[in-house]
Structure formats: structure tokens, C-alpha cells
Design a protein around this nucleic acid. Structure first.
Lengths: 206, 206
DNA sequence: TGTTTGACTATTTAATTTAACGGGTCAAAG
DNA sequence: CTTTGACCCGTTAAATTAAATAGTCAAACA
């Protein structure tokens, strides 16, 4: 049997591995998490890990993917629950912020090392980016259809929106040695993002 | 006589030193520019350099300061020339972009090394930041006074504006090895900043 | 007196070597 | 089908050493 097939009890084992990996990554980041450590946490051998995942990259990609899927799921539920599209954007920023708070170390992966990771990782990143842009585009479209927003080029606007959020995060967190993204920093990021959101919405409601 | 006093011909000598330092820094950045090299370019001894500037940090700060002053001067002239405040913002972004294009390597200074520089450098940075914020605040105020913009909290808005521009620059230039901020990257940054500017102005013209 | 310099030092940084570690494989066992 | 210990090899980290570099200063000079 091959690891890629997810059936029954095998699926459960994969889940426990993902969970262990997620904990390690969430605390120490990609670089500082070894396969040996994950195996030790699960009290299995490293070779067994390699029986379920062909390589480190695949395991880590799977972790990121599952985390992102959960985030997307929350977002979708939220968009169905809310009526006002400006509130959707607001909630989106809030959810995304919480998500990144628990997943910081993941983002701490050094750029230089990203390039070392095979195309697989880069592909995942761009896919998630696209998916995220799709969600925002959807909200903007809905805003236009319901007469709440006036916006031409929803796609371009959505990309700009995401890049500005990303940029504000970077600018604030930039010169922190390493684990030192403090609670205040997170609050500062949230504040700036809210301020931007206000401005953004204002530009849409014309 | 002490280097800090800038009179007559002494001033001229300081200028030539600043010019030589500026060239080196502009090409190789702070870290990779040595006092020896600057001295060699001027065909003077390193000790002479230290006669005019107490240390490397002071010389480099002086270079950055003079560059920034020139930029600010251009901006002020521009604001007096133009009537429409939205055009002022547009021109500001354009000027700033050109300025940073010629001064990239300066920004390449590693954050970790910035902290090594004494408070002096950090002070300069915050002072310039404040000055820049003042310029934008001025434009926003003028916009409100002339009825072109409606904006409460001009200061906060100005800071956000600058941080978003900075953020967009970072996000685009982030994962470039070193000297590889290509012309395309610069164009991409400019494009995103223009797009944001459009949105920003829209939110102000209510 | 103001300016320039070569020779010097003390610290940082870079280059070099060496040891440890981590990703990944595999034959064999359960 | 699943698990494992033992193994390999390339990368990284630690330790050691060599080279630069920021900064000083007494002496020369204009």
C-alpha cells in the first residue's frame, strides 16, 4: 500500500502524523523541526515516517495545506453567515490574523531555504495564494452584485488587498530577531490592518 | 579645527568625501564599503577620513541625510508647483520610487547590523520617517483645506500611507538573493504603488 | 594652527578545517 | 502491509585560524 491513498485506518495514522508535525512546526518552524523529532514524538521510527510520506517536503506541505484548508473553510462559512460584504472583509482580516498568530513560525521559514525546497512547495504557495485571492474576489463581486460596492477589476483589487495586508505584516514584524514577535507586535499589525480596511472599504463604497 | 564646523573650503572637502562615500555606498551598500576604499578613491589616507568624520557611522549618516534632504527638497518644490493634492500624492510616489531606485543598496543594509549601529543611526531613521510623514500630512491637510479631500486624522492616515508603500516594496523585493532587484521588480513595485494610490485617493475624495 | 600620514592595535569578519546531524534508503523482521 | 535498526551521503554547525577593518596616535608638514 502506498501512502498517498487515504483509506480507513491508514487515514487515521496519517492524521496523527500530521498532528505531531503540526505541533513541532508551529513551535519551532520548518527548519528547526527534524523528522527524527516528529518520529520520537509519535514513538515510532524515522523510517516509518518515510513509509507514510516520501520526504520531508511532502509532509510539511501536507501540514500547511490542511491548515490552510481549515482557514478557508472558516472563511466560507463566515461569508455564508454574513450579509454585509464590508463585514465579510472585516471578519476575513480578523480570521486571517488569528490564523497567522498560531502559525507564525511557519512563516519564519527563510526565503533562501524556500528556494531549496522543490517546486512542490512553491506550487503550493502560489495555489493557496490564488485560492485566497479567489475568496476576496468573491466577496468583492458579491458586493457589487448587491450594490454594496462599486469596483471594477475585482481580481486586481483583491490581489492588491492581500498584498497590502501582507506588506503591513512584514513591515511591522521585519526587524525582530527571531521568536520575538510579541503580542504588542501582533496588536500593532492588527491595528494597521484594520485602519487599512476602513480606508479600503471607503474607496469601494462610492 | 573640528570636522563638525562647516566653513568655506573645509565645507568643500567634506562634500567631496560625502560624494565619494555616496558612490561607494550606492554601488556596494553599507556593509561592503570600507573606509579604506573611500580613502583610496579620494587618494587620501584613511586617517584623513577620520580627521573629518569621527567614525564610519557618522560619515554614513551624513550621506543618508544629504540624500534625504535632496529628496525632501524636490518634494517641497513639487508641492508648491502643483495645485491638485491628488497629483501631489501621485508625484510623491513617483519621486520616492526614483529615489529608492538609485539608493537600493542602502536599503539592503541587514536589519541585524542596523541594531549594531549606535542609536545615532536609528535616530536618523526615525527623524527622516517623521519628516516624511510630515510632508504627507501637509498634503492631506492642504487637500482638506481646499476641499479636495475629506480626511479626519491626517497624521494617522499619512503614516498608514507610508507604511503601505513600504510594505508593497518589501513584499515584492523580499525573496531576492542580493543584487537581484531587477528592473521588472522595480516596475512591479511602481505598478502596485500606483494601484494603491488610486484606491487611496478614492477613499479621500468623498 | 590646521591638515596629513604611516604605523599600530584590538575587534570583527571571513576562510578553513573538522565533527555532528539530518534527510533519505534498504534489507530484514514482525 | 507495516515497522525497524543500521547505514550512507550531503549539509550544516562548531572550532580553529587567518585576514580585514574600524579606529588611534605621535610625528611630519604646510
Amino acid at each position: 500500500m502506498v501512502a498517498i491513498i487515504h483509506d480507513g485506518e491508514n487515514r487515521a495514522k496519517l492524521e496523527t502524523i500530521l498532528e505531531a508535525a503540526r505541533k513541532r512546526i508551529g513551535t519551532y518552524g520548518f527548519e528547526k523541526t527534524t523528522m527524527q523529532e516528529i518520529a520520537a514524538d509519535l514513538r515510532i521510527s524515522k523510517a516509518t515516517l518515510y513509509y507514510y510520506f516520501p520526504d520531508k517536503e511532502s509532509l510539511f506541505s501536507a501540514v500547511v495545506e490542511s491548515e490552510m484548508e481549515e482557514f478557508f473553510s472558516l472563511v466560507r462559512k463566515m461569508t455564508q453567515r454574513l450579509k454585509r460584504t464590508d463585514h465579510m472583509l472585516q471578519e476575513y482580516v480578523s480570521l486571517r490574523h488569528d490564523f497567522f498568530r498560531t502559525f507564525v513560525n511557519l512563516t519564519r521559514l527563510r526565503i533562501s531555504n524556500i528556494s531549496q525546497f522543490n517546486t512542490q512547495f512553491r506550487d503550493l504557495k502560489t495555489r493557496l495564494r490564488r485560492e485566497e485571492a479567489g475568496l476576496i474576489t468573491g466577496i468583492l463581486r458579491k458586493g457589487r452584485e448587491t450594490g454594496q460596492f462599486s469596483c471594477s477589476d475585482e481580481e486586481g483589487t483583491a490581489l492588491l488587498f492581500l498584498e497590502v495586508l501582507h506588506g503591513l505584516r512584514m513591515v511591522t514584524a521585519q526587524n525582530k530577531p527571531f521568536p520575538e514577535i510579541s503580542a504588542e507586535d501582533f496588536e500593532a499589525i492588527a491595528g494597521k490592518q484594520r485602519q487599512f480596511l476602513q480606508l479600503f472599504v471607503k474607496s469601494l463604497i462610492k
